[in-house]
Simulated scan of single mutants.
Amino acid sequence: MKSFISKLLLLSIFSIMCLFSASTVKAAQMSLDSVIRASQRIAGDWYDASGNRVLSISKGYINGCQIVDGTDFAGGDPGLGIFIIQEAQGRKAIHLEWLGSGEHRTLIMNKKEQLSSSRYREHYESVNGVYLGMSRQQVINLLGAPNSSDSRGREMLNYTNLGLKIGLDRNIVTGITIVGKGAHFDKSGLGIGSSMIDYYNFYQLNRMPSEFSKDTFQGPFSIGHGEFLFFGSKNITLSIYNN
Score class of each variant (00 low, 15 high):
3 S>L: 09
4 F>P: 11
5 I>W: 15
9 L>F: 15
9 L>E: 11
13 I>D: 05
13 I>C: 09
13 I>T: 06
20 F>W: 09
21 S>L: 09
23 S>N: 11
25 V>T: 03
25 V>M: 02
27 A>L: 12
28 A>M: 12
29 Q>P: 00
29 Q>S: 00
30 M>Y: 14
31 S>N: 10
33 D>P: 04
33 D>E: 09
35 V>K: 05
37 R>Y: 15
38 A>M: 06
42 I>H: 07
42 I>E: 15
46 W>Y: 07
48 D>H: 02
49 A>I: 03
49 A>L: 08
49 A>T: 02
50 S>V: 08
55 L>P: 11
56 S>I: 15
56 S>F: 05
56 S>W: 13
56 S>Y: 03
61 Y>G: 06
64 G>L: 14
67 I>Y: 00
68 V>T: 03
70 G>Q: 00
72 D>G: 04
73 F>T: 00
74 A>T: 01
75 G>Q: 01
76 G>L: 08
76 G>H: 02
77 D>H: 05
77 D>T: 02
78 P>D: 01
81 G>A: 05
81 G>M: 06
83 F>Y: 05
86 Q>F: 12
87 E>Q: 15
87 E>T: 14
89 Q>F: 09
92 K>P: 07
96 L>F: 11
96 L>W: 08
97 E>A: 09
97 E>H: 00
98 W>V: 02
98 W>C: 14
99 L>F: 03
108 I>P: 05
109 M>P: 06
110 N>V: 10
111 K>E: 07
111 K>H: 11
114 Q>W: 13
117 S>C: 09
119 R>P: 00
123 H>R: 09
123 H>K: 02
124 Y>F: 08
126 S>W: 01
127 V>H: 04
132 L>E: 03
132 L>Y: 05
137 Q>T: 13
138 Q>I: 06
140 I>Y: 12
141 N>S: 11
144 G>Q: 04
144 G>S: 13
147 N>K: 10
148 S>F: 14
153 G>Y: 07
155 E>S: 10
156 M>W: 07
157 L>N: 05
157 L>P: 04
159 Y>G: 03
160 T>V: 10
162 L>D: 01
163 G>F: 01
165 K>N: 02
170 R>N: 12
170 R>H: 03
174 T>I: 02
175 G>Q: 15
177 T>V: 11
177 T>C: 05
181 K>D: 01
181 K>F: 05
182 G>V: 13
182 G>L: 12
183 A>D: 06
186 D>R: 06
187 K>S: 08
192 I>G: 13
193 G>C: 12
193 G>W: 10
193 G>A: 10
194 S>E: 14
194 S>G: 07
195 S>N: 10
195 S>Y: 14
197 I>P: 06
198 D>H: 14
202 F>W: 14
202 F>R: 10
202 F>A: 02
202 F>L: 07
203 Y>D: 13
204 Q>N: 03
204 Q>S: 05
205 L>K: 11
205 L>F: 07
207 R>I: 11
207 R>C: 02
207 R>P: 07
208 M>E: 13
208 M>D: 04
209 P>R: 13
212 F>G: 01
212 F>V: 01
215 D>R: 14
216 T>V: 15
218 Q>G: 10
219 G>R: 14
223 I>N: 03
223 I>Y: 02
224 G>D: 00
224 G>F: 01
224 G>V: 06
227 E>W: 01
227 E>R: 12
228 F>T: 08
230 F>H: 10
232 G>W: 00
234 K>W: 14
236 I>A: 11
237 T>C: 07
239 S>A: 06
239 S>Q: 03
241 Y>D: 04
242 N>Q: 04
